[in-house]
Amino acid sequence: MAADVTVISAPQAPPHPLAVFWHDLARNRGALLGLAVVVLIALLAIFADVVAPHAPAEQFRAHVLQPPAWVEGGSWAFPLGTDEVGRDILSRLIYGARYSLFIGISVVAVALVLGISLGFAAAFVGGLVDVMIERLMDLIMSVPSLVLAIVIVAIIGPSLTNTIIAVTIVYLPRYVRIVRAAALSEKAKDYVTAAKTVGVGRWRLMFVTVLPNCVAPIIVQATLGVSDAILEAAALGFLGLGAQPPTPEWGTMLAAAREFLQRAPWVVTWPGLAILVTVVSINLFGDGLRDALDPRLKRS
């Protein structure tokens, strides 16, 4: 009898939401692979001083435009070859990861803060404030992304910081819209009405009651936003309007390498490959996150 009682009185506790999330994510091998590569790139960036064989700006004048190690004329001292002034490409790529990741994360961080503030203002204050914010976002989105970015850079000047500012402005509408939409749909739910009824203040209502329930779409947008920001910043660098040489930013490296396309194709190949691998990995992980966090959006 006693055994029966224990069976009945021990209903299985529901698994922790984080455990469910991890279970869903871990089933997606692509997402895990993406995460692993992103972590690897981040580690390389953090420990660049230890990992990179040479300093990013060190010039080996005797080894100008040396091909990769496995090609005739290459050497393992410069595994991926050297550029037009004899700098080690592998070292520059490793240090360059710092810039790309820094740009991606800074853009998303600033855009998140602004996006949540403006999105919440639009959703909770409503009325004229909502209309003004929406129209402003419409305006930003009416200019093609890269065109707007180059105009902003033309005004404030090309540099790494200004790249971050320009890319943040360009991508801000996405964050504002997602936060506004999520806040509006949560606001209409019973638990928010209940919280209001018991006299919860406006700030507490926004940031303690509603915000945690808007987190899923915001996290997905933030993850995919990192890759968008990296691509956009690299495009600006490529056009000569982003980080300036000799900064080993990947897009800037490509711009300098263009004229050696025929003579030394490896100088062009590696920085682009670094951008592609980083962006693909982040997107793989972001797609997996979306599927795990929001079953309604599941693509397959």
């Binding site: 890759s227 691509l231 690299a234 495009a235 490529f238 897009g251 490509l254 263009r258 396309l261 025929q262 194709p265 062009v268 190949t269 920085p271 682009g272 490959l273 951008i275 592609l276 962006v279 693909v280 997107n283 793989l284 797609d287």
Partner: peptide, 22 residues
């Protein structure tokens, strides 16, 4: 499609020139 979506097209252009033109 994932690679296409993530492509830095300025680099993609250079690669295609390298392969098909050069």
């Amino acid at each position: 499609a994932l690679f296409g979506y993530s492509m830095p097209i300025f680099w993609w252009g250079l690669l295609l020139i390298l392969f098909f033109s050069v």
